[in-house]
């Protein structure tokens, strides 16, 4: 069972709620994924104050946990204030902390990320930091109070899949007891299976599901891939070998010459 900040979860999929063709498809995709945690954001409300209410009512009707994000923040101050506002509205101390450092790659500004994580952890937040696969940054995030790490495996929305398996293995190996969630860059269920086979604890998806031809079917496919990858990791996989090894016994074979 996955445990994130003392909360036990049976699903290893976290799902974003953006970019779906319709609210109905979003709702069906959430259900098909089996997720127990959906991510949400805070954005400026136009006069009238009702557009956010409609979306939020839908999400609340699901009964899932909600993980607010600080998407779009580029400074420590922006991220900390957004997190505080999210806690006020969503009544949760969970925060998916994003501090973006580059417009093109949406790569985290890891220096600002660590500082924001320190401030928020000290303020009682349970921080889920969106980070790179850098080992030392991961250590710093743990030092300032994070108990979960959410490294990218490729840029957000790119669908490139895991680009640096060595770095991901290194994170898993160095932090065997820390929940590790791949947060960004997954494009296909096979990508999800790959990172789960490496021993990652969960994945966070959005674009790969929302922009699929059939988001609901894709949500279901990812859920199966995550389960398969996790089961494979637990089962202990065959190590690759450079030479062939016959699977059928050699002893007892017929000799015709």
């Amino acid at each position: 069972m996955l445990k994130l900040y003392s909360t036990e979860l049976s699903s290893r999929v976290l799902l974003g709620t953006a970019q779906y063709p319709s609210p109905a498809i979003l709702m069906d995709a959430i259900k098909a994924s089996g997720t127990e945690i959906v991510t949400v954001s805070l954005r400026r409300e136009m006069a009238g104050g009702k557009s956010g209410d409609k979306f939020w009512s839908l999400i609340r009707s699901l009964g899932t946990y909600v993980l607010p994000n600080t998407a779009g923040c580029h400074t420590v101050k922006e991220a900390v204030l957004t997190a505080q506002m999210a806690r006020d509205v969503f009544a949760t101390d969970w925060i998916k902390l994003e501090v973006i450092g580059n417009h093109d790659t949406l790569q985290p500004d890891v220096f600002a990320l660590v500082e924001a994580a320190r401030i928020l952890s000290d303020d009682g937040f349970k921080v889920f930091p969106y980070t790179t696969d850098d080992l030392i940054v991961a250590e710093r995030l743990l030092e300032v109070g994070c108990e979960v790490l959410m490294p990218w495996c490729a840029p957000i929305g790119s669908g490139l899949g895991p680009l640096n398996l060595h770095a991901l293995r290194s994170l898993r190996g160095n932090f065997p007891d820390i929940p590790l969630i791949i947060d960004a860059g997954l494009g296909r269920p096979s990508h999800a299976a790959t990172v789960m086979e490496l021993g990652f604890d969960a994945i966070l998806l959005n674009t790969a599901v929302a922009k699929a031809g059939d988001p609901v079917a894709m949500a279901r496919a990812f859920a199966k891939a995550v389960d398969a990858g996790h089961a494979a990791f637990q089962a202990g996989m065959l190590e690759p070998r450079d030479v062939a090894v016959p699977s059928t016994p050699v002893i007892g074979r017929a000799v015709f010459t």
Binding site: G16, T17, A18, Q19, Y20, L26, T39, V40, S41, L42, R43, R44, E45, G49, S51, G52, D53, F55, W56, I59, P68, N69, A71, T82, M85, V89, F90, I156, G157, N206, T207
Partner: peptide
């Protein structure tokens, strides 16, 4: 003044 409300997010 900033007035924010829940929205879709990834």
């Amino acid at each position: 003044v900033e007035i924010l409300t829940p929205r879709q997010g990834g």
